[in-house]
Design a protein around this nucleic acid. Structure first.
Lengths: 337, 337
DNA sequence: TTGAAAGCGTTACCAC
DNA sequence: GTGGTAACGCTTTCAA
């Protein structure tokens, strides 16, 4: 492997000049720049990351802490991971995976060994054991998700409250006066990710503002629970029922239950579910969908991280950003009762 | 951040001794080891990865090249990623993400800059533009998937041929003499991932051996295609039809189509589909499932990589490993016609 | 069994 | 605008 020394020799300049050509940290005459660039090209020189990290104290690597296999919704996790990795490249950074089964110790390790310059934490819960560590680490940390106490932390997430509001507003506008919200499945409720509360709160806010009734019904991945919830929903409505189903893993079961009752989505029943647009496309379910825009959240998380790294301010930062969600309508879905 | 020099000083030994205590590359007296370990503990020393990489020419990082967002089956990709990352940690390595949108240049970059010691490529296609690069790189490369020409490459994958055979054998044993295999959706067929061919070939082999008929019918993510395929299947069978549906994204559509025709899975129809056991659990579809064991494939891929790194033999290696698949039966699914 | 010192390939400061 | 050189923090060879 050629080194910058080789390049310097080939170009007939000092090693430091090669470094400055690459970094642009000091003016270089057109002539020598050309010479150096030619030598780099010709030797196919690439700077050694380890040496660079050692000398500059910057690895240009961001640690991404991925959730510990909750089996649920791996697909949407991958959506985050994938976009985060691509975006990081756009900012000339790489992503190192930190699996959550290492726990808080993993965070200390990658930062302590100076493998990466900063951390992005996914799936942050209300009370997260990683947070005290995150605060004490002397590197920038960006959270995807909002803990109960976000003080001293940089957080970003989809605006779940707004999403909840929008869903209710849409169904109300379609003429529904009673709207059933199916909760996330127990496994998710138990994890105390507070986006659940934020979403549900959004539905209540809108309901109060519009004078409609919102029913909160239990969610689950078994037919029995859903069936029971649908019973309740039907019992409480005189007209056509309307459902809001934020948990993707429930949507399919609900659909089966409804069609088992001879109810046609979009005709007899209005449903809004969360989904990425591509997923909705792939499985043409007649739902209006709340797009929580994981890609946008991911992009911004990386952007924020890179800004923090740029301005390498040591002290702790604090900020909270909510990414607006989007409702995509599907024709003939929201039918007035 | 404390350095090994600090540790040496605190322990009253030479810096090299600290290094040897950590690496175990030479015998250390119990006494000095204790002293050094105490100092490490007390200073919470962690070796600097960059410096270590520079001096040892080993980063202890493995690059993982993830597929470029084909929107399909992100969930199963994440299953690989997650297990790969955990397993790598068990071998004291970390995973760096390399997104496939960087293409072959990305491989050259991470290897050229010596950010990682080896590469694992996921979703290897029949003719893969990354392969020539992979062969020319002077680091170990492990492929998940088997290209048309695996010469000079280390490959690992699920044994799709065996999976195909098993599916047919199972249905034949249940009394079916005509078995319909629904192809993967066109998007997958077009990508020329040869596991499709291997699987289909397996079904043919078993069919021939057992004297049963295998029908290959087009797959797709739209109802029309599936409906047509089901028509053909029904037309060709006098008894109860049997289906093999390796593509997960098709299973749900098929199920809807069948129940639309008043056919009950497990009673009127036998179906075998591929799925991870957990997924099957989550969505209780009455299918027997082929478990392609992505976790096992991932674990072995990492293990092979770490062995290659251990024995850091420069020359190109070549090997091909097929991981046996497993069929999980669900009661009352495979009903004799 | 241990220590001293020479690199490893950059960056960045200090001269010129 | 450019060159020389001292770090950066570790590994490893050579001596003792």
């Amino acid at each position: 492997m050629p080194t910058s020394k080789d390049v310097a020799q080939a170009a007939g300049v000092a090693q430091s000049t090669v470094s400055y050509v690459l970094s642009g940290k000091r003016p270089i005459s057109e002539k020598t720049r050309k010479k150096v660039e030619a030598a780099i090209e010709q030797l196919t020189y690439q700077p050694n990351a380890g040496a660079r990290a050692l000398a500059s104290r910057k690895t240009r690597v961001i640690g991404l802490v991925i959730p510990f296999i909750p089996e649920l919704e791996m697909g949407s996790i991958m959506e985050f991971v994938s976009v985060i990795a691509s975006t990081a490249r756009q900012f000339d950074h790489d992503i190192l995976l930190v699996t959550d089964d290492e726990g808080a110790a993993g965070l200390r390790r990658v930062v302590g060994q100076q493998i990466c310059d900063g951390l992005i934490l996914m799936q942050v819960e209300d009370e997260d054991e990683r947070l005290p560590v995150a605060r004490s680490l002397h590197v920038p940390v960006v959270l995807i998700g909002i803990p109960r106490d976000p003080s001293g932390l940089v957080c970003i997430d989809a605006d779940f409250e707004m999403a909840g509001e929008h869903c209710v507003r849409d169904l109300a506008a379609a003429g529904h006066s009673v709207i059933s919200v199916i909760d996330w499945q127990p496994a998710v409720m138990d994890r105390h990710v507070n986006y659940v509360d934020r979403f549900l709160h959004g539905t209540d806010v809108a309901a109060k503002a519009l004078g409609v009734t919102v029913l909160h019904l239990p969610g689950g991945t078994d037919r029995a629970t859903i069936s029971e919830s649908v019973d309740k929903a039907l019992a409480s409505t005189t007209g056509n029922p309307a459902f809001i189903v934020p948990d993707r893993t429930i949507q399919d079961i609900l659909r089966r239950d409804l069609s088992g009752r001879g109810l046609t989505l979009g005709l007899d029943v209005s449903v809004i579910g969360s989904a990425s647009p591509t997923l909705a496309e792939l499985q043409p379910i007649p739902l209006s969908t709340i797009d929580l825009r994981p890609a946008e959240v991911s992009r911004r998380a990386v952007k924020i991280m890179c800004q923090l790294l740029e301005s390498d301010s040591q002290g702790p930062h604090e900020s909270l950003e909510l990414v607006p969600t989007v409702i995509t309508h599907r024709s003939s879905t929201l039918r007035p009762q």
